[in-house]
Nucleic acid binder design. Structure first.
Length: 469
RNA sequence: GUCCCCAUCGUCUAGCCAGGUCAGGACAUCACCCUUUCAAGGUGGCGACGCGGGUUCGAAUCCCGCUGGGGACGCCA
């Protein structure tokens, strides 16, 4: 039987890292077994579902390289299908109309809670034969009263639930829309899903769904419940933990491969290996190896992996990814150095593309001001003669190459009888406005001859004005 | 409250199923090296089996209890 997995988010929020990891595991499991990965949009809650969230989810998955083989399939397009299955259950006596009002149900639950019981529907409409005027009925599934449901989870092993703990859940709302626990079963069945891989917040739903599968006389798929991802405070991940939306990671300058690698290692491992290519993940991933315990999202480790991927990515793929971040800073990329050159110079010095862009502004625009500390330390009166000598040496360079520039800087240090730092630092501040930048010859290379001379002149003027005060 | 799940360094984890290792790796952190700045890189340090009972010659590993954490209990998914 062909392995078929599905990722089934509800478009009531952005694609967050927890969902992305579930999607990744589904995708990996399907790929590993040569099967299909399907995207299903669970939008039966018309109140909260929005097209924007659906678009964000698809965009996030695409960016991560987890495009589905089938879908998106929307549950809102299949209402008729669910109605047919409800009719089947009604005929078989496995479902019934319930006319209870919300007020009645609330009162019932309050009473149960007060008595220290688990709140649940008591089945009061099970034997009702007459409709209740003025009340549109819902349909409830008639859950078995006795016996137990055994879930053989691929990750957790055997879990046993007593049917006595389960109640008759609503499977169709008064407006005819199915509820989650029902549409899931119908769709997993209709779509021939073989493996249901989802968050462990669904564990309690599983026995109910298995009972519905049984009532439909349908084969039950295999289940695998993956643990949750927690924020740094050990609480469920949410907006207040910073970047939770996948598209936001893109905006913050993360590479999709880095995020995928990080997320894969969160709750799953293969010995001591930390870095995995896409192909390795597909080859090595086994859902049975997924951990049972929840894990905490560690931004530092993601940052480390991102840097790792930046260091190894080709300039050809990094340059176009960097461009939007530079443009966001208002830079005109046409007048500056080739982005590939910028990437090569900066790849060891930035953990994100945003950081890389921030540190590369000098290559495209003369700094508007000198950093106070850097200027105070390096653009003093004694730097003037050195800068003048440097200007001369640089102006006379024939080929504008790293070697020639390096040589010129060293020669100047020798001629002025000062240490290299006494030459490189003033020059660095003159060129970038700051005390830190790539190796001086690489900085020169990116700035270019014309701009270099102009910026040295500007620094000399600045020193003269400063000394005169 | 009831039901379900979980428990190794600060964090991600290996080891657990088939008991015997100085409990291994990675991130972070600290120190040193390299160095024209900042990085990157290299070397080293600190750092964990939640607690209590069993079983056993021997327990991170098997069993029980406790504690702690999480999830679920909707005409949300």
């Amino acid at each position: 039987m062909t392995v078929r997995t599905r990722f089934a988010p509800s478009p009531t929020g952005y694609l967050h890292v927890g969902g992305a990891r579930t999607a990744l595991f589904c995708w990996l499991h399907a790929r590993h077994h040569g099967g299909q990965f399907i995207l299903r949009i669970e939008d039966t809650d018309r109140e909260r579902s929005t097209p924007e969230f659906e678009a964000d989810i698809i965009e996030g998955l695409t960016w991560l390289g987890l495009a589905p083989d089938e879908g998106p399939i929307r549950q809102s397009d299949r209402l008729e299908l669910y109605a047919r299955y409800v009719a089947r259950l009604m005929e078989a006596g496995r479902a019934y109309h319930c006319y209870c009002t919300r007020e009645e149900l609330d009162a019932m639950r309050d009473a149960q809670r007060a008595a220290g019981e688990k709140p649940r529907y008591d089945g009061r409409c099970r034997h009702r034969t007459e409709p209740r005027p003025g009340v549109e009925p819902v349909v409830r599934f008639r859950n078995p009263d006795d016996g137990e449901v055994v879930v053989d989870d691929l990750i957790r092993g055997r879990m046993v639930f007593a049917n006595a703990e389960l109640d008759d859940l609503v499977i169709m709302r008064a407006d005819g829309a199915p509820t989650y626990n029902f549409s899931v079963v119908v769709d997993d069945l209709e779509m021939a899903i073989t493996h249901v891989i989802r968050g462990d917040d669904h564990i309690n739903n599983t026995p109910r769904q298995m009972n519905i599968f049984a009532a439909l006389e349908a084969p039950v798929p295999a289940f695998a419940h993956v643990p949750m991802i927690l924020g740094p405070d050990g609480q469920k991940l949410s907006k207040r933990h910073g970047a939770v939306s996948v598209t936001q990671f893109r905006e913050e300058g993360f590479l999709p491969d880095a995020l995928v690698n990080y997320i894969a290692r969160l709750g799953w491992s293969h010995g001591d290996q930390e870095v995995f290519s896409r192909d390795e993940l597909v080859a090595l991933f086994d859902v049975a190896d997924v951990n049972r315990a929840a894990s905490v999202f560690d931004n530092d480790k993601l940052l480390w992996l991102n840097q790792h991927y930046i260091q190894r990515a080709s300039a050809a793929e990094l340059a176009p990814a960097l461009a939007p971040h530079l443009r966001r800073l208002g830079l005109d990329l046409d007048g500056g150095p080739a982005l590939g050159d910028v990437v090569e110079v900066q790849r060891d010095r930035a953990k994100t593309l945003v950081e890389m862009a921030d540190k590369s502004v000098f290559a495209f625009r003369q700094p508007t001001a000198f950093d106070e500390k850097a200027a105070g330390k390096h653009l003093r009166g004694d730097a003037a003669p050195v800068l003048r000598a440097l200007r001369e040496a640089i102006a006379g360079i024939e080929s504008w190459t790293g070697d020639a520039l390096h040589e010129a800087v060293e020669a100047t240090a020798g001629a002025c009888d000062v240490k290299l730092g006494k030459v490189a630092q003033p020059l660095r501040v003159a060129l970038t406005g700051e005390g830190a930048s790539p190796a001086i010859e690489k900085t020169l290379l990116l700035v270019g001859r014309e701009q270099t001379l102009r910026r040295i002149d500007h620094a000399l003027d600045w020193i003269a004005a400063e000394v005169g005060r």
